[in-house]
């Protein structure tokens, strides 16, 4: 990790039909950092990612990507630096996994050029790393949710972006696939120095894999710091308006939250 800023957000606000979703958000993500964003439902986490990936454009304030104002990028040049992995891909995509992953090469093509063997190789490597090669020729619509999420990350990888923005990549997945996705993100981060910004509901996986955590509540940043600090009774109760029980991870000794007892 170095001190270069991958993303710098200052005074970011966004309102939709009178409702304030984000309010004066300020933070920075360093190049190569693994940053997790947590917070209750409707806090504005997804909206924040959508602003940075330019799906939402009518925000106020400033977002800088690699020291350059987001608004000055063309969509294509931005896609070579930053990519967004949505919470879920549609369930009825008619393309094969290989076709879908190859589409990530489009930002690197001109309207008249064709997919080159080099592009094929990059897509293949991405599928190799994400262990999606074995179903490369299956149609996306026939995949399970977990497999689809792996493909989604394979595609982000094939795009060769330096910054990944992920919206709850492991939600709705079973234990094995959750673990696989988080391991994969850590591996990508280590291998390529990719900056990872990941929104999640899972405090434990955030604490176990993040280098920094941000908590958002009601559109404002409520907590910003290292993972150990957020595992604090008062802070978490304030964020989620409920009490938490803690335990120590038997292997790493880190403080984690345990599920509530059902009454």
């Amino acid at each position: 990790m170095n001190d270069q800023k991958a993303i710098e957000i200052a005074e970011l606000s966004f309102a939709i039909s009178g409702k304030q979703i984000l309010e004066r958000i300020c933070f920075a993500v360093f190049a190569g950092q693994r940053l997790f964003i947590v917070g209750p439902n409707g806090a504005g986490k997804t909206t924040l990612l959508r602003c940075v990936s330019r799906i939402i454009t009518n925000y106020q304030g400033s977002i800088k990507v690699k020291d350059r104002n987001l608004r000055t990028y063309s969509q294509k040049s931005l896609a070579k630096i930053l990519t967004y992995v949505p919470q879920s891909l549609g369930a009825d995509i008619p393309f094969t996994v290989r076709q879908f992953v190859l589409m990530s090469r489009y930002p690197h093509l001109s309207p008249f050029s064709v997919i080159s063997p080099e592009d094929e190789k990059i897509a293949c490597d991405a599928m190799e790393m994400t262990q999606t090669v074995c179903f490369a020729d299956r149609v996306m619509a026939t995949l399970s949710g977990g497999e689809r999420q792996q493909v989604s990350i394979a595609a982000a990888l094939a795009q060769q972006a330096e910054i990944f923005l992920l919206d709850e990549p492991a939600t709705y997945l079973d234990y094995k696939h959750q673990r696989d996705i988080h391991n994969l993100l850590a591996k990508i981060n280590k291998t390529y120095g990719t900056t990872i910004v990941c929104v999640t509901h899972d405090l434990n996986s955030a604490v176990l894999s993040a280098e920094a955590i941000i908590a958002i509540k009601e559109g404002k940043i409520f907590f910003e710091g290292v993972p150990e600090k957020i595992m604090n009774e008062e802070i978490l109760e304030e964020i989620y308006s409920k009490k938490f029980c803690f335990a120590e991870h038997p292997l790493t000794g880190q403080k984690i939250v345990v599920p509530d007892v059902i009454e």
């Binding site: 799906i55 294509k76 040049s77 896609a79 891909l89 995509i93 393309f95 589409m103 489009y106």
Partner: peptide, 18 residues
């Protein structure tokens, strides 16, 4: 190429530089 991406979703199309 844009048609391919847009046929999936606007989010994916934007993420891939459309």
């Amino acid at each position: 190429l844009n048609l391919n991406l847009m046929s999936i979703s606007d989010e994916i199309a934007i993420a891939r530089g459309v």
